[in-house]
Design a binder for these strands. Structure first.
Length: 307
DNA sequence: AAGACGAAAGTGGTTGA
DNA sequence: TCAACAACTTTCGTCTT
């Protein structure tokens, strides 16, 4: 069940304010602007006749980080500028152009390639646009700080995407990222940690519940089973059964149990496959859940019903 | 025969001296 | 920088349905 109430990623507060005019969501507790890229589709001017519509329109493509220069490149060196200058200024002009060229080409060339790769992986994983944007932003920052040096471009792209997924609470597993990008799991993990640390990105520890929706639809489980497993997760979290464990393991175990309870049995292997963990891990989590939450009763109940 | 279960040994990463 | 450590995996043998 997708939680519609958003929480502030900075302070966890839920006191959010949606400023429609600016298209921003602001956390009243800490002042963080959470979402400032919401599009205001209304025009703020009016057109009285067709000639005015020409003169008043002034938008270009929206600014975006998935364009390598955010769609706003500046180039020194338009030929037409050149004729306005004489002697000394002209030399200065060439120096400036050379400078900018040196600074920008390396970064821009890299970004162009990287963002193409990013788009490819992102569409492979069917990630929402907002996540792609975030990943592009993260990657751009990483390049500007020279964090790509010594690492393959692709791995940083994958790391940025992974981080963006986490921040938007639509987590993908490292395995999925790995499959989509062709980069080894541990490599993605490494660059992910490195980049987020260097850029000081706050990443909330991923919540097992975020995985439930995806896993359960992959297993064709009913909505009741899904919400039951979320309930189980919440109870497990209360008694600190979840801390320190891999979120996918817990999520898959909760799903496995609730499938049993609702008589929609899936084998451990099936669940393990979609969750990217082993049966053993599911067993361990599953056992803990049974022990701590005494769910045996509920399972037996549905067994009796069947007869 | 397939699935569930559990023991044992191995792997990669974190932590604390 | 190294060792201890926890979580997770792999592998394999046994039990259950």
């Amino acid at each position: 069940m997708a939680e519609m109430v958003k929480k502030c990623p900075e302070c966890g507060g839920i006191n959010l304010f949606w400023n429609r005019e600016k298209g921003e969501i602001i956390c009243r507790d800490c002042g963080l602007v959470i979402e400032d890229k919401m599009v205001d589709f209304t025009q703020e001017w009016r057109e009285f006749d067709s000639s005015e519509s020409e003169s008043k329109r002034r938008t270009g493509a929206p600014m975006t980080f998935t364009q390598y220069d955010q769609g706003l490149g500046t180039e020194i060196g338009q030929k037409s500028d050149l004729f306005k200058l004489d002697g000394g200024d002209r030399n200065k002009f060439f120096r400036l152009r050379k400078w900018q060229y040196r600074i920008s080409t390396a970064i821009e060339r890299n970004l162009k390639l990287a963002l193409a790769e990013l788009k490819r992986v992102s569409s492979f994983l069917k990630l929402p646009k907002s996540v792609e944007e975030e990943a592009a932003r993260i990657y751009t920052l990483a390049v500007q700080r020279g964090l790509v040096r010594g690492r393959s471009m692709e791995s940083v792209v994958a790391g940025a995407l992974y981080a963006a997924c986490r921040r938007h609470e639509v987590p993908r597993t490292l395995d999925e990222l790995s499959e989509a990008s062709g980069i080894e799991k541990k490599e993605i993990g490494r660059t992910y940690r490195f980049v987020t640390r260097e850029l000081g990105l706050t990443i909330l520890p991923s919540n097992p519940a975020d995985y439930i929706a995806r896993f359960s639809s992959a297993l064709n489980l009913s909505a009741e089973t899904q919400s039951k497993s979320i309930e189980i997760l919440e109870r497990a979290q209360k008694i600190e059964l979840t801390s320190g464990r891999g979120p996918t393991g817990i999520a898959s175990a909760a799903l496995y149990v609730s499938a049993l309870i609702h008589g929609e049995k899936r084998t451990q292997r099936e669940v393990a496959d979609v969750a990217g963990v082993t049966e053993v891990t599911i067993r361990n989590r599953y056992k803990e859940l049974l022990d701590e939450l005494n769910l045996e009763k509920e399972i037996k109940k549905t067994k009796k019903k069947k007869r």
